[in-house]
Amino acid sequence: MKPISTAGGPAQPPGRLRVQIDSKAFRSADGAATEVLRDIDFTLEPETFTCLIGPSGCGKTTTLRIILGLDRDFTGQVERAPQRPRMAAVFQEPRLLPWRTVEQNVRLALPAQEKKPQETPAGAPNLDALFGALGLQEMRERFPAELSLGLERRVALARAFAVMPDILLLDEPFVSLDEHTADRLRALLIELWQARRTTVLMVTHNVREAARLADRLLLMNGRPARLVGDVTVPVARSQRGGETLRHFLAELAAAHPETILA
């Protein structure tokens, strides 16, 4: 295993991410090794929005865990710029502390000197604007048990953007939501990303969702999983609800029928 690197070479723009996973294997209880990832190699440029797509169970979440540094048992390396980038993650479950209010859950992600509103220094992120953008102003003093799943997901997004990350990783953050709620949160995500530019890598198996949000699609499949496609979305954001996008998705599904679930 090569350690995750945040240094070396000339200075890189904030938010640049290089991922090289030569091999990743899991061991079963009897000691047998099963390789789950091989030859995963890609670079994300700063302030870009990329989706990693593939069937359930193909290793997308494992890839995110490696990038986050939660799994170091692999062969390869992850290079981040700057040396200590601010990273944030949004998982499938909101993972809110039930005994903390909405605002307290968001502030827990901040540096120590910014956790309490009365101690927030000048130049700290404006949580009023963030809560307003996500429609959470009236929810700040509520506890997670008082929220719908859609509102909990908004709190998770607020917590991620509150740290003003250089790199944001999302693991199917809208799964299990009804389509209306998911659509609203997708729109909010794009609004936040455009206002607070960060490098985004989002995992999903929903190709329509990916094509509406991202400008680049990384396709993963196989056993062990590999990257089988690297596709730029050729449709302007203003046209992603129309026939042009549907035509692109049909061509993509025809080219990658085992990866794209139309």
Rank of each mutant, 00 (worst) to 15 (best):
A145M: 02
L127P: 07
G76E: 01
R153L: 01
P82A: 07
E251H: 13
Q92L: 02
Q194M: 11
Q104S: 11
M164G: 00
L217R: 10
Q113F: 04
M87P: 01
F49W: 14
V78G: 04
V233R: 03
H256R: 08
P121M: 13
H247Q: 15
R72F: 01
R240M: 08
A210Q: 07
V19C: 05
R100M: 12
H180S: 09
R86S: 12
E45N: 11
A225S: 14
L177R: 04
A129C: 01
P234M: 06
D166P: 00
E35H: 06
T232R: 15
T204L: 05
N105V: 07
K60D: 05
T199C: 06
T101M: 02
D128Y: 02
L44G: 04
L127M: 09
R84N: 14
S5M: 14
Q118D: 12
R86K: 15
T204H: 09
P173F: 12
G59T: 09
P144V: 00
V203I: 15
E258L: 13
M1R: 13
M87E: 03
R80G: 12
L192H: 04
L147R: 04
L68E: 13
F49L: 14
L218I: 15
R153I: 01
P46L: 04
G15P: 08
R184Y: 02
R226N: 04
R196T: 02
A88R: 01
E191V: 08
V231T: 09
D183T: 11
P224A: 09
A255N: 12
L134N: 06
L37M: 05
V231C: 11
R107P: 07
R212D: 00
R72V: 09
R65T: 01
D215S: 15
I4S: 12
D30T: 12
R159F: 11
A262M: 13
I67G: 06
S5W: 06
R140H: 00
T181I: 13
T204S: 07
L97M: 14
G229D: 10
D166C: 02
G229A: 10
A29M: 01
I67L: 05
I53T: 05
R80P: 03
E35P: 03
L252R: 02
D41G: 02
A160C: 13
S56T: 13
R84K: 13
F248N: 04
E251Q: 15
P46R: 04
A129E: 15
D73T: 14
M220E: 03
G8P: 12
L37P: 00
E103R: 06
W99H: 06
S176K: 04
T101Y: 02
R154L: 07
A253H: 15
G123E: 12
I40L: 08
Q137D: 11
F42C: 09
I53Y: 03
V102H: 02
H256V: 10
A162M: 02
V233D: 06
R159H: 13
